[in-house]
Design a protein around this nucleic acid. Structure first.
Lengths: 225, 225
DNA sequence: GCGCATTACAAACGTTCGTATAGTTCTTTT
DNA sequence: AAAAGAACTATACGAACGTTTGTAATGCGC
């Protein structure tokens, strides 16, 4: 099946409070089945594919997950697939498995952000540990991404002027300076600033500054023609 | 010498504006010499050692650098040395070289934060590229660390009370709330707050908040007995 | 004992901020 | 054509902020 079975069933656990999905891309059907079996036994959701292409056809659900990927695949290699996913801004953590890998392959995979690179035969627990680490990484990434996305959607409710005021507020300018910068009356800036605080749900300036930092906004100051 | 010489001398370059030091830990003396030679030819400073122990004896100068490390060493292995450096909070970027490595080794090295893992024979340019990447990484790390250290030394000039006020200011509390929290009069808070701005050289509250973020300060609010 | 930093507060003044109320103009949507 | 909202300004006022000047007690090092 997968490799040597030197870890008793009882030792297996992937004690995750939230469920996670493991995608498996592996051309060997029997290997696919045993991997699916292993993951299902510890309560993980599993979706298997026979090739990279096949996985890209189906749209990947937006859940906490990781990808167990064979290096040798029909068509596109595992490493190429990794590069393609990165280019497509798909940040699913990858665990490579291989029967006939070499060091340059593993180094390239790890440089590309892979969580682990296992050579057959491997202990089941090794793979499960890697999967736990990978899904945990994905969970954290999603959490951070969600935070920024929420802030972004608040920011998007601001009118262009309000956004401009926010950026200048974040640079530490006083209302009168912002007014001069934007060619407005100070009172107008004050009002927009009030809108910004409400819409962004910031309870203090300190709050607002931290939001701007997380959003990575940078004021593009300058002369407005 | 090092490996195959398939890259002409003319193609070699490590166009670095600032000089960098390459530490080499390698037990084979002739290998050590040829590595030193290679790095010197492209204008890098080189310090070589025959073992990990030897390197730790000498105190490592505080300059932009990287470490070229043989996996197989007398006494402590390269991987053990990597772990020891990490534990000692020495963050020098490491490039492993090895004649007889395997995939688990390379994966462990990369998981441990290594920049690259090269197997002999390798092209000289490969190693030089890795060294450039490594020193660049070190330069950036030092830059970021320096920024924080500078902020930290400013923060350390604050009296305990001023530090306490700063932390509460950073949480977004108003002066009167800070006063209540610390059992002070509002006017006192205002004065300390002024001291904080001067001593931290913050030109605005936004500035100050960002400094606090970089410092990773967190107010430990609570009841003062 | 003397100098010095720290902690603490007050009175006073000017600045800055925030909001409420009210109004104009322009564009977009219905 | 009417409604909605965005952009913009004015008056007005209170709250919050920041600094200056002055006072005073404490504790530490030389």
């Amino acid at each position: 099946m997968i490799g040597r079975f030197d870890s008793p069933r009882e030792n297996r656990k992937a004690a995750e409070p939230t469920s996670a999905t493991v995608f498996v891309v592996e051309d060997d059907a029997s290997m696919r089945r045993s991997l699916a079996n292993l993951f299902q036994q510890v309560g993980l959701d599993v979706v298997t594919f026979g090739s990279a292409h096949e996985m890209l056809q189906n749209n990947i659900p937006d859940v906490v997950s990781c990808l167990v990927l064979d290096i040798r695949l029909p068509g596109q290699s595992g490493l190429e697939f990794q590069a393609e996913l990165a280019k497509s801004n798909i940040h699913i953590p990858i665990i490579f498995i291989t029967g006939h890998g070499d060091i340059p392959m593993s180094v390239r995979a790890m440089k590309g952000g892979a969580v682990d690179f296992l050579t057959k035969p491997f202990r089941e627990q090794e793979l499960l540990d890697a999967v736990v680490a990978a899904t945990e990484r994905d969970r954290k990434r999603r959490e951070a991404e969600q935070t920024v996305a929420n802030l972004r959607s608040l920011f998007d409710t601001l009118s262009p002027r309000e956004q401009a005021v926010l950026k200048l507020v974040a640079t530490g300018l006083m209302n009168k300076q912002i007014a001069a910068e934007l060619g407005l009356a100070e009172i107008t800036v004050k009002i927009y600033r009030g809108h910004v605080m409400k819409k962004m749900r910031a309870r203090s300036l300190a709050d607002l500054i931290r939001m701007v930092e997380k959003l990575g906004l940078h004021a593009n100051r300058g002369q407005q023609t």
